[in-house]
Write a protein that binds this DNA or RNA. Structure first.
Length: 840
RNA sequence: GCGGACGUGGCGGAAUGGUAGACGCUGGAGACUUAAAAUCUUCUGCCCUUUGGGCGUGCGGGUUCAAGUCCCGCCGUCCGCACCA
């Protein structure tokens, strides 16, 4: 019999055993210390892809490791099941979004189970089911009652053909991504969550997240975009129609206020709109200014456009100074006050504008290299000393800044202010496949929350997608409902919630899922915060910020005493693969490629040579995907898992390769052969014992730090060492321990081997091995001997040898003698037990 | 434009300021075999004529007895934000 580990049999056997034993069931009432390991839950798009496999393997290794360490582990899985792809499928394939989604979930659940993840399936949830989104509706009502929900007019991208709102990412070159129709701007009344109320604490909270990548913290910090400055009103020297007499502006550089040479307002500013009503040329300019797109390239090349309104603003510190008021396309209506004053000498953007429209450029900041009268040839934005600024002259920029704010506040015409870039979170989506917003509109009472005893507001299933637009709008009965307040005729809200709302609290629902409320506070607090959260960096800003906001909102409302949902965050790299392009421009899947002798790649079907493209993230569009399923069939779950861990550091991209999976599969068989090798039960092997203890230490440390590639390397070394060792009791112990160390990564192999060795119970329940720190040190050490910092020789010496003896031994070495050529060293540096450096 | 990360053999990657290249992949040689697969042994940074020596962590400087690692300046790649007042 060829004695090979057979995953086709073993994988299923152990998956079944774990399920029967409820091995990975998380007991909230357990007395053990708790560990919550979570990977970002998938969108059920159809099939599991390699990115999922990598993500969930990492989490699984950590979860299994924690279990073996004696923690009660919560490691759940669910489905982020609302969203657009289901509606697109409905339109294209004439299936109901719910049917499509639930079928995908069934498929993907089975795929995940084949990989043997240690998940507590009893806590599985799908956001598209009423038992989840109904509780979300209850939380939405809570937020409404707490004043954290507002209704505002907001501009949206409207696709007139699909009759739907598009996200910014769905607008490509000003056209709808599906319909190709030119996108219109449309103002709609929409629901917003007041995340801006939390701007400061979301920012400050980042400091405490020391187990998050710095990169993500920085991205969030930039996104929140705090800046401090002065806000004040310019009085207008000219009267405006409608009694408007001032323009409110915000600046972060009040120290340059004497360098102001114009005031600029946004084309969307109320004053601009008022002027436009009277003067056609203003309306015309506004239309032109707003025409430009928002793509990166367009902004890069966008020309600054301005229109002089003829209005004049009075300088707050000098009645006699008048600043012309321009409408300028670079002023954003939704940042600050939608108006600013321009200081061309010390702001790049203002300089460009002033140069184009011949506005004055004044120096009001001097630096060591540019004095008070030096001409300005480009915007100087560095701080320095105020000049040409009356009472500010001689003050350093930051002092001048404070002084201007102080005077403005004393005189009462302005005040210091903090601005944030962060905007409120618009959660309305004019779509069917999402959580219905639990609100009823009434002409008399306005929007009214659905009474809690009427929750969940269930999404109707009898809808059609043959007509563009939101099917909820045209549903015959669903919208018709009485106002809960006055009993009059009401209309049910037809917008649904942004799917980011669904993912903003699922980790709480995983921790506790009672039938009658969103979560049980005491139970949830036993698990939260999530100890280790793992997912893609693409969620660095939105999902993670929204989840942090939601958690803080619950905390502020007194519903939970957790402020930050994710204690540790890890962002894993992507799974990549080479791309292949045929001469006629089609992308080809790796399956369709054949390697000819000499390394040429040809398309299997046609024999035509293909171009080898860049290594990129696996994607449908580039067709460079590798489906996990056939790989699982061929190599088994453990080989796939092992490869996911082995080749690259987890935060970097992993390139899929045939060689890599082969190597992983080879390792599985190597371990199996060791297990099947004749046992030796007598005799010690002290060298192997040391290696073993070192490996236990190294693997534990590596997994703790999520450095799975290092844990794999350490296990390869141990495996080689055991293979080379002669039979002994030590060797037998080493094999047993190797299984324990490999168990989180290759659990099926480990269980199978554990069983045939006749060990007790399942290895999933076995404790993680401990090591003896004394075994980590050697009696003999290898000491490097350098001459002038260059390695010339090594020598072995007893550990703990004195400096003097080390030096003497080193100097006595023949090679060193010849290097020195009889001379006396000028200096000798000794690092005990490590190195000698002789300076000649 | 602003901000950040990264740059080490043919490839993926290891290296508390202290022996650069662990481990894996690829490749070479050999063993076993009728043969192949599988497996095992062994070599595999570059250069020089060897014992041996020289050069090597993107480039140029610096700090240090000692730099892949710290500092300064370039170059390149990738990522995020983007007219944010």
């Amino acid at each position: 019999m060829t004695d090979r580990f057979d995953p086709a049999v073993a994988d299923r056997r152990w998956q079944q055993r774990w399920a029967e034993a409820g091995s990975f069931h998380a007991d909230s009432n357990s007395a053990k210390p708790k560990a919550y390991v979570l990977e970002m839950f998938p969108y059920p798009s159809g099939r599991i892809h390699m990115g999922h496999v990598r993500n969930y393997t990492m989490g699984d290794v950590l979860a299994r490791f924690r279990r073996m360490q004696g923690y009660e582990v919560l490691h759940p899985m669910g489905w982020d099941a609302f969203g657009m792809p289901a509606e697109n499928a409905a339109m294209e394939k004439k299936v109901h979004p719910g049917a499509w989604t639930r079928q995908n979930i069934a498929t993907m659940r089975e795929q995940l189970q084949r990989i043997g993840f240690a998940l507590d399936w009893s806590r599985e949830l799908a956001t598209c089911e009423p038992d989840y989104y109904g509780q979300e509706q209850a939380l939405f009502l809570d937020l409404m009652e707490a004043g954290l929900v507002t209704r505002k007019e907001s501009e949206v991208n409207w696709d007139p053909v699909d009759m739907t709102v598009l996200a910014n990412e769905q607008v490509i070159d000003g056209k709808g991504w599906r319909s190709g129709a030119p996108v219109e701007r449309k103002k709609l009344s929409q629901w917003f969550l007041k995340i801006t109320d939390f701007a400061e604490e979301l920012l400050e909270g980042l400091d405490g997240l020391d187990q998050w990548p710095d990169k993500v913290r920085l991205m969030q910090s930039n996104w929140i975009g705090k800046s401090q400055g002065l806000q004040f009103c310019f009085r207008l020297a000219t009267s405006m129609p409608g009694g408007v007499c001032d323009i409110e502006v915000f600046t972060t550089r009040p120290d340059t206020i004497f360098g102001a040479s114009f005031v600029a307002i946004s084309p969307g500013h109320p004053i601009a709109e008022t002027l436009a009503e009277e003067r056609p040329e203003v309306a015309e300019f506004i239309a032109r200014a707003q025409a430009g797109g928002t793509s990166a390239a367009e902004i890069e090349t966008a020309e600054k456009l301005g229109f002089d309104t003829g209005l004049e603003a009075i300088h707050p510190f000098d009645e006699n100074v008048r600043l012309p008021v321009w409408i300028a396309n670079f002023v954003l209506m939704d940042y600050g006050t939608g108006a600013l004053y321009g200081v061309p000498g010390h702001d790049v953007r203002d300089f460009e504008f002033a140069a184009k429209y011949k506005l004055p450029v004044r120096r009001v900041v001097a630096t060591s290299s540019a004095g008070a009268s030096a001409p300005i040839t480009e915007a100087e934005t560095d701080p320095g000393v105020a000049v040409n600024s009356q009472f500010l002259d001689g003050l350093a920029s930051d002092q001048a800044r404070a002084e201007v704010i102080r005077r403005a506040e004393t005189a009462g015409w302005g005040q210091g202010k903090t601005q944030y870039r962060l905007r409120d979170w618009g959660v309305s989506r004019q779509r069917y496949w999402g959580t219905p917003i639990p609100v009823i509109h009434c002409d008399a009472c306005g929007p009214v929350g659905v009474p809690r005893d009427q929750l969940p507001v269930v999404l109707p299933e009898d809808v059609s997608f043959d007509v563009p637009g939101n099917p909820l709008d045209r549903h015959p009965t669903w919208t018709k409902v009485d106002c809960p307040k006055c009993g009059g005729l009401g209309r049910r809200e037809t917008d649904t919630l942004d799917t980011f709302v669904d993912s903003s609290w699922y980790f709480i629902r995983f921790a506790s899922q009672p039938d009658d409320r969103p979560f049980d506070r005491a139970e949830a607090e036993k698990w939260l915060p999530v100890g280790q959260y793992i997912g893609g960096v693409e969620h660095a800003i939105l999902h993670l910020l929204y989840a942090r906001f939601w958690t803080r909102a619950l905390e502020r409302m007194g519903k939970i005493s957790v402020k930050e949902p994710f204690k540790g965050l890890f962002t894993q790299g992507m799974v990549t693969h080479e791309t292949y392009e045929s001469p006629d421009g089609r992308w080809l899947n790796p399956d369709e490629i054949e390697v000819r002798e000499g390394g040429a790649l040809v398309e299997r079907a046609t024999g035509v040579e293909v171009r080898r493209g860049r290594v990129e993230k696996m994607s449908k569009s580039k067709k460079n995907t590798v489906d996990p399923e056939p790989i699982l069939d061929r190599y088994g779950a453990d080989a796939v898992r092992w490869f996911m861990l082995s080749d690259s550091p987890p935060e970097r991209d992993l390139e899929w390769s045939e060689g890599g999976i082969e190597g992983a599969a080879r390792f599985v068989q190597r371990v199996w052969r060791l297990v099947r090798s004749p046992p030796g039960n007598e005799g010690q092997d002290s060298a192997l014992l040391k290696k073993l203890h070192r490996t236990i230490a190294a693997v534990g440390e590596a997994i703790e730090g999520l450095q799975f590639n290092k844990s794999v390397a350490a296990l390869y070394e141990l495996t080689s060492a055991i293979e080379k060792a002669k039979p002994s009791a030590t060797r037998d112990e080493a094999i047993r321990t190797l299984l324990l160390l490999a168990a989180p990564g290759a659990p099926h192999l480990a269980e199978e081997a554990w069983a045939i060795r006749g060990e007790e119970g399942m290895i999933a329940d076995a404790p993680w091995p401990s090591f003896d720190p004394a075994m980590l040190v050697d009696d003999e050490v290898t000491i490097a001997v350098q001459v002038n910092g260059k390695l010339r020789e090594t020598m072995t010496a007893p550990r703990g040898i004195s400096r003097e003896d080390t030096e003497a031994l080193a100097l006595a070495l023949p090679k060193i003698q010849s290097q020195l050529g009889g001379g006396t060293p000028r200096k000798v540096i000794v690092v005990p037990d490590r190195l000698v450096n002789i300076v000649a």
